[in-house]
Simulated scan of single mutants.
Amino acid sequence: MERLNPRARRDVYGSRINRAHSPVFASVVPWLTIMLGSLVTALPVVSAIPLMPPLALLLLLAWRFIRPGVVPVWAGFPLGLWDDLFSGQPFGSAILLFSLILLGIEALEARFPWRSFLQDWLLASVLSAAYLFLSLILSGARIDAVTITYLWPQALLSILSYPIIARMVAIFDRIRLVRFRVED
């Protein structure tokens, strides 16, 4: 009896079963998206007040909430280092804040392993607002009512943009696991 090529008779869904992913691509995509989020601050956006949300932080939070094992706890140091190079903040502020945020998320996940998207959004909102306020303190700027008033639109935009960023991370995660695969 003639042996048939099993790939020749696969149906539409057969290529998704028993596939092997590219381990390099699967591990590089989360890091690369967060690093590109840090580079967005270099875009020429002209505004009288800071409006650009901390995209690197929001991407880091989205990756951590959607795929907890992809971004390890120690990733706060190198990703914060990269963000410090491009954000204009004093060197070490993002290293400290990214590391503290990831340690806090890890402690929270150990205590409460179940969450919904609304809880993730609430936690991301609190963490991004705290990040912006602590970045203001660490920058050495004069803190007064006007400075804090200018911080609210950026915090509000960060809170409102998290669902969009989380959806983008989910799309990147699907691309990371589906598109590139190692052939047998």
Rank of each mutant, 00 (worst) to 15 (best):
R3M: 11
N5G: 05
R7M: 05
V12M: 11
V12Q: 08
Y13V: 13
G14F: 04
R16C: 08
I17M: 08
S22D: 15
P23Q: 08
V24E: 04
A26P: 01
A26E: 15
S27H: 09
S27D: 03
P30I: 02
P30N: 04
W31K: 04
L32S: 10
I34K: 04
I34L: 06
P44N: 11
V45C: 02
V45Y: 07
L51H: 05
L51E: 05
P53V: 04
L55K: 00
L55D: 00
A56G: 13
L58M: 15
L60E: 08
L61M: 10
L61N: 07
R64C: 08
F65R: 05
G69S: 12
V73M: 10
V73Q: 12
W74Y: 14
G76C: 08
F77P: 02
P78R: 10
L79W: 08
G80K: 15
L85E: 01
S87D: 05
Q89L: 14
A94C: 13
A94H: 15
I95F: 13
L97H: 12
L97G: 14
L103H: 13
I105G: 11
E106T: 11
E109Y: 12
E109I: 11
A110L: 15
R111S: 15
F112W: 15
F112K: 13
R115D: 12
L118M: 02
D120Y: 00
A124H: 04
S125Q: 01
V126E: 04
S128R: 03
A130E: 01
F133M: 12
F133N: 03
L136A: 11
L138C: 06
S139K: 06
S139F: 03
A141P: 00
A141V: 08
R142W: 12
I143A: 15
I143K: 12
D144E: 15
T149D: 08
L151G: 05
W152S: 07
W152L: 10
P153C: 10
A155E: 01
L157Q: 00
S158T: 02
S158M: 01
L160Y: 01
Y162T: 01
L177D: 14
L177N: 13
R181W: 07
E183C: 12
E183Q: 15
